[in-house]
Design a protein around this nucleic acid. Structure first.
Lengths: 135, 135
DNA sequence: GGCTTGAGTTAGACAAAGTCCAATCTTTAG
DNA sequence: CTAAAGATTGGACTTTGTCTAACTCAAGCC
């Protein structure tokens, strides 16, 4: 997969999002690295080189991307949300000492015995978080 | 299990915690109901009847109880932490519309294929969160 | 070209959850 | 009983995230 400007424009358009300059910058930050970034860090990285993108725009854009299914929120730390550019089903290893988040492939973990849901309810997702720390 | 003052005193002592008035109030709020409460709600419930317990004390106490293994944090909502008086391994059903949290018994769910951890690391816990919503 | 329209961006004010601090009060060990 | 250690407190503070009203900018239309 390429992270060129054209590829990013294409990606946003495909999800019905107008590709503005700021959104492209943020998309680039998210997709060019396979990390789990906080909003704070995304703001810093977006403004690192040159352009000015405001805090409000970063939050607006992250929420927009999340709503349109481009990215996923990872909720492991009560202090901040992390954003995951990988929306395929998968799980997370969370180092509680360092805050580091690592992926666990969905097909590596097998979960059986899911409870029946109340009628009229659907599963939106199953998050597995394995919390680890140094011995 | 009883939730009398004596039982609560005993419980705290067993975990090396001096049973002060405020801590007993908070323990009672937590253990006399089997719910997942936020700090906010615990503060309100603790002060409902009569006594005054400050916000600082509620947070201090919840962190203390968590550190000593009396309660567990449930991190499903980026806005606030919930506290679970049940520290036995089990999982959670989270209704993203209403914020309601329900337990899933640990033995109901079978998880296989846990990845090998890096050397010197131990698993602190495995949290499974099933996010559900109305159709 | 000028004008309107609507979407996008922005600074800064605001909100909510949680922490910190220094003064004060309670427990507990002796 | 008393002193030291531990617990509690109000209020200031921090951090993450949201809101608002003004401003920018490009597109379509006459």
């Amino acid at each position: 997969m390429s992270y060129s400007r054209e590829a990013m424009v294409e990606l946003l358009r495909k999800h019905g999002i107008s590709p503005t300059h700021q959104r492209l910058e943020i998309a680039h930050v998210l997709f060019s690295r396979c990390e789990h970034l906080s909003a704070d860090r995304i703001l810093a990285l977006t403004n690192e080189r040159f352009a000015e993108t405001s805090k409000a725009t970063v939050y607006n854009t992250l929420n927009l991307f999340r709503d349109r299914g481009l990215i996923r929120e990872v909720i492991v730390d009560p202090k901040r949300v992390f954003y995951d550019p990988n929306t395929q089903p998968h799980h997370h290893l969370y180092n509680v000492d360092t805050g580091e988040i690592t992926d666990i492939a969905a097909d590596a973990l097998e979960i059986s015995g899911m409870p029946a849901l109340p009628p009229g309810m659907v599963t939106e997702g199953v998050d597995v978080i394995v919390r680890i720390r140094a011995l």
